[in-house]
Design a binder for these strands. Structure first.
Length: 488
RNA sequence: CGGGGUGUAGCGCAGUCCGGUUAGCGCACCUGCUUUGGGAGCAGGGGGUCGGGAGUUCGAAUCUCUCCACCCCGACCA
């Protein structure tokens, strides 16, 4: 057949690459580690952006834009921060090209060397806090709640579509607050926003928690995360929200006067999600027939395929359904391309993950019905024409719910509570998934576990009750379980 | 960045070991006709810097060197 994808069971990585390529989401570019996001993939990102942006606005944030380039000296102001990113920064050293000595080709003009090199932003804390210094002088300027949609560059050694590329798209929120409590509340609020988005729109269950010191963002006091479980049993960090304390305020000297005319440093947060979410979306729902999209993020929710080649009657019915559903806010595409056969279209739209397909043939119309096929279960039903406008919106909603329920069930089936080291190792090797286990709280033990099993502590879940136990590796006392998994 | 692999038409591949006509095949594409309820059939047609460069040779997709890109496995990381 024209397009076949590798089965998940045969080669999970290849399956993932096949989905990305064959559903038309992205392809490799001429630049190492950078991908081209194709129109269909970008349309999904636009759906995500629109929803997230609305949620940010609802929580009082505004958008702005800061420079792509950061003076090298800025990056080194915050010691942990620079150490965290130094190994993966792209550096601009010159600002001009000229013809080569032989008159052929083009070379970097050695006379155009920058006095201070510029770093292509791996994240924008430094340039933003340098700006905030001028924006903040009084408690009346606070809180400052700004988000930016941007691209960032992290020079990764090994890349994968959407999950890790040298350049990626994201949003980064950067907020400034008068008190520590308020900043912590902001970071928590944004973690909650991300969790709602993941669950309600992506239909992807996530665990909310905090990172250990080892896994924390460079420069943060506390990194809060949402962690999702992929179908191969590996965890994916899907979004992070950082409480930055006064680290950046001190590094960039951002102070404000309070009501008592006393000066103090500002408290900060930053938070972000990226195009990595698309990778998470793929690996949460898709199957061996292709992409599966939750209706709320599908660029096209319903596709209508006329059978056989379109004629007047069928075309009219199709247009009528499109109009009816359009009024209800459902996005509908009619594929009346006469050059492609219905069977081809069925396979194609399944590959693209369109949630619902309506097939209309003369045989159906004689009975005043159409055939409705849902992507998530592949079930087909005959639905009377006069019920379509009620049935389809309800079905979309049911698909959305079913995808979430299915993913949640998968996570339940791959979430083990483990209390002995042998089982811990076996589980990781044979099934993967999340493992809830005791840990003695030291970075040394965390590192040792990673060396031995490749698993890392994904987070200390927010709702994890206190419980006395002993560390899975060292047996030292522990007051609470943490969540382990192999991760992307 | 280390180990392994791949690179030949838009996509997937054969040919490379052992150099020798005009570089093939399937899908896709174009034209026409017939078809159309799960990836249509027949006929005709177009499309190639064999990843780039250098070298060996009478002659290179094939041998040598080098560079590049991608994939898989590690280390690093959102």
């Amino acid at each position: 057949m024209a397009k076949e994808i590798t089965a998940r069971a045969d080669d999970y990585s290849q399956w993932y690459n096949d989905i990305v390529k064959k559903a038309g989401l992205a392809e490799h570019s001429a630049v190492r580690g950078c991908m081209v996001i194709k129109p269909y993939g970008f349309a999904i990102w636009e759906k995500m952006q629109a929803q997230l942006d609305a949620m940010f606005k609802d929580t009082g944030h505004v958008n702005a834009y800061f420079p792509l380039f950061i003076p090298k000296s800025f990056l080194s102001r915050e010691a942990d921060h620079v150490e965290g990113f130094a190994k993966e920064c792209a550096v601009v050293t010159h600002y001009r090209l000229k013809k080569g000595a032989d008159g052929e080709g083009i070379v970097v003009d050695p006379d155009a060397k920058l006095e201070e090199e510029l770093i292509v932003r791996p994240t924008s804390e430094t340039i933003i806090w340098n700006t905030y210094r001028d924006w903040i002088s009084s408690y009346r300027d606070l809180p400052l709640l700004v988000n930016q949609w941007a691209n960032v560059v992290r020079w990764e050694m090994r890349t994968r579509f959407f999950l890790r590329t040298a350049e990626f798209l994201w949003q980064e929120g950067h907020t400034a607050h008068a008190t520590k409590e308020e900043a912590i509340a902001e970071a928590k609020q944004m973690q909650e926003v991300y969790a709602s988005f993941a669950q309600d729109y992506m239909a992807m269950p996530v665990v909310q928690g905090s990172k250990t010191e080892t896994e924390r963002f460079a420069g943060a006091v506390d990194t809060m995360t949402i962690e999702a479980l992929m179908q191969d049993g590996k965890a994916l960090q899907a979004g992070t929200s950082h409480f930055l304390g006064q680290n950046f305020a001190k590094a960039f000297d951002v102070k404000f006067l309070n009501q008592d005319n006393k000066e103090s440093y500002v408290w900060a947060t930053s938070w972000g999600v990226s195009t990595r979410l698309i990778g998470g979306l793929i690996m949460t729902h898709s199957d061996d027939d292709g992409l599966v999209l939750p209706p709320k993020l599908a660029p096209t929710q319903v596709v209508i395929v006329p059978i056989p080649k379109p004629n007047e009657t069928i075309a009219e019915v199709a247009e009528d359904i499109k109009r009816q559903l359009g009024q209800l806010g459902v996005s509908v595409k009619i594929d009346d391309d006469p050059k492609k056969r219905p069977g081809f279209k069925f396979a194609e739209y399944e590959m693209m993950g369109i949630p619902v397909r309506i097939g209309i043939g003369m045989r159906d119309l004689e009975k005043s019905v159409v055939e409705v096929a849902r992507r998530d279960t592949k079930e087909k039903t005959q639905i009377p024409l006069d019920q379509i406008h009620q049935y389809i919106p309800a079905l979309l909603s049911e698909i959305q719910d079913n995808l979430y329920a299915r993913s949640l069930q998968f996570r339940k089936d791959h979430w083990r509570q483990v209390d002995d080291w042998d089982t811990f190792q076996e589980t990781l090797e044979e099934e993967g998934g999340f493992i809830s286990a005791h840990w003695d709280g030291t970075s040394e033990t965390e590192k040792r576990i990673k060396e031995l099993t490749k698993a890392t502590i994904r987070c200390i879940p927010n709702d994890q009750p206190l419980e006395n136990g002993s560390c899975i590796l060292t047996g030292a006392p522990s007051s609470r379980r943490v969540l382990f998994a192999k991760a992307y």
